[in-house]
Amino acid sequence: MKEKLSELKETVARLLKDRTVDFFIAYQAGHSQVEPIPFFLTTAEHVENLFLNNFCAHNLSKYLLDYLAGDEVVGVLAKGCDLRALKRLLTDHRVERGRVFVVGLPCIGIYDRKKVQEVYPAGLVEVVEEGEEVILRGETGDKRVPRKEYLLPRCLTCPDHNPEFYDLLLGEKVANGPLAEEDYSDVRALEEWAPGERRRYWTRQFERCLRCYACRNVCPACNCRVCCFDVAEPRWLGKGTSLDEQEMFHFTRAMHVAGRCTGCGECERVCPVNIPLMKLNKKLAKDIGALFHVPQAEIPTEVEPLGQFRLGDPDEFN
């Protein structure tokens, strides 16, 4: 990934100079190697601050929602998963294709900051890939670990290492590794628990919620102009923190993205208190796959499994 940085700099500089784009969204260095942050460039002079490594997890296309009212063309860097998020925004008619310039970024996996930090709480210098292993190179020496164990969960079942479409691709396409089918083993395990046990498990999770709404803010499927959690009237949710309200928040959030979730797992990644939101999302995806024969990898689709009145629907409509 890092090796593409110079090409990225050249590309962004050129796009900004020849006014192909009015500004560009990519990454810049954060507090440490493992925490790159979004970077919004308006002039070519800023390209020197661009940053790229295997921790660039952020889905940048969600920021496009901030530029709806206007006519600027926004350039955005997108990996395969980010592109599916962008597709979500396009399918939901939230973003106009003509106003986005997609620079595609082939990617073979992003590392999970939290897992790496368990090994290297601070002082990581870089990650060197060596086949199925990685060397975590730090200030205090190297650690050789199996690559798969340190990837983000979404990368393990990534259906597309290359973005499905783009206006320009950085470097060459990479070969898609053997695709690990989503096996829903974690969901299945939960399903087998007794209801009381499950209830206790989720209570423990939801109790921790801070209602910071980070999960919603990062989610590409949560793209409403006005979010139901933000309106005063009708008061769907109380503002205070209580288990009831937290539960209501989580159920509502899960149902609002049911059949629309792209499976990127950003919500779970950004949650400051590690609530396993993807277990809820995946349970719904699994059921939708079984009931409507729309697998997660095909979402967003043209015909939304939960968003249509179908005459042949097995249930009555009265």
């Binding site: 939901d92 939230r94 793209n223 409403c224 102009r225 006005v226 968003g307 009145f309």
Partner: peptide
């Protein structure tokens, strides 16, 4: 004011009663 224009409602209407229109507003 709240409508995102996402068109989710349109195919859910069994009676084809929903359409999408373009409005102009000041921002």
């Amino acid at each position: 004011g709240t409508c995102s224009g996402c068109e989710w409602c349109k195919p859910t209407c069994p009676y084809g009663a929903i359409d999408i229109k373009t409005i102009e507003e000041r921002v």
